[in-house]
Design a protein around this nucleic acid. Structure first.
Lengths: 201, 201
DNA sequence: GTCTATAAGGCGATAGAC
DNA sequence: GTCTATCGCCTTATAGAC
């Protein structure tokens, strides 16, 4: 089923390729649905060999998740940092949205596992991931609070529900996005547009 | 871990209690993370006994998922049917939203499995569930098209992205909803309010 | 209907050869 | 670094007693 990719990538380090394949399989079949033998087979290796690079399956998934979330944070921060000074809150939120979707949909194997299945992972993994995720949500808390403070967002809007709704829309995009139909920029523009300006005539 | 519930429910049929417990465990730990022994233990039964009621684990999860989606459809249709004639599209969408969240958050064990983990289930199960889910999405397609046709939704809004975004917000609510903070009606009102009228001042 | 017992195979992980 | 071989445990499912 899963093609063998090791021989086609003689440059990449084995450790990195194990992470890539693990991310892909975890993302597709879940943590409990992915077995060490599948990961090894996709790399044309034997199961036992992976334990030279990783202590356990649990450590492997934790590393995949950590890379995924930090990837989102980096991409979002880069998009926001590229904005001109004195831009509006809407522009910041739009840039953050684009960054979030870019990381999620283009390098999605690493990120989607934590979004779809965090609750099914071993407890210690959940705890570590939640620390990083909370750091990320703090960034959104700040942007939305700024927007309400400076008057761009109505005073009676519940910022917690708004933040969770925006991130909900973005994360759920994973469930239906198909490459080639709409660009990520187009989707980001529509999604924030609907929240910001509404859809009513 | 999971409490034993059989003796406390002498009335309910065993088959129904197996479904209830399975839904709860599948929803929490996923299909591959839930083992037959856990389901049996929660009912103070032995694993082998379940096979008197169900042919296989696969058939069991299929039944849970089918009940879940049909539960959403029924609840949504009831909420919409309770509206007065000649109501606006916004009222219909709001009622559907309330119904969706009611089914999802209050009887969520049955519904959340298919939303969180459909892609990780056995192929035949996925195929059957998608048929019912598509029937449900057709209802939303119609309501949103009506809304755009009668002028309530701006002509340039992409209805597909809007539908997937709305359902995305609703389904993702599972990931953060906590009983007691906000009522389901309040959340439904905010979420559709943000989409419909926007949040900008 | 539920039990005990067990089949038949899959799982994560380890040890030691190369 | 990767292999072979295997340990000990867990998994779904079945057979037959009660």
């Amino acid at each position: 089923m899963t093609e063998i990719i090791k021989k086609n990538n003689p440059v990449k380090q084995t450790r990195t390729m194990i992470l890539d394949v693990s991310a892909k399989l975890f993302s597709q079949y879940g943590y409990n649905g992915t077995v060490i033998r599948d990961i090894a087979q996709a790399l044309n290796m034997k199961a036992g060999s992976l334990y030279y690079h990783f202590d356990s399956k649990e450590q492997l998934v934790l590393e995949v998740l950590t890379i995924g979330i930090e990837n989102i944070i980096d991409t979002v921060q880069r998009e926001v940092a590229a904005l001109p000074k004195n831009c509006s809150s809407k522009e910041i939120v739009q840039a953050a949205t684009k960054g979030h979707l870019l990381a999620l949909l283009e390098k999605g194997d690493y990120t989607s596992t934590s979004i779809r299945n965090l609750g099914q992972l071993p407890e210690p993994v959940q705890a570590e991931v939640l620390v990083i995720r909370d750091r990320y949500e703090d960034m959104w808390r700040k942007w939305l609070l700024d927007a309400q403070t400076n008057g761009e967002i109505k005073a009676n809007v519940n910022l917690k529900v708004l933040r969770l709704s925006i991130l909900g829309v973005l994360n759920r995009t994973l469930a239906w996005y198909k490459k080639g139909e709409l660009t990520i920029e187009e989707i980001a523009g529509m999604q924030i547009g609907y929240f910001w300006d509404g859809v009513s005539a």
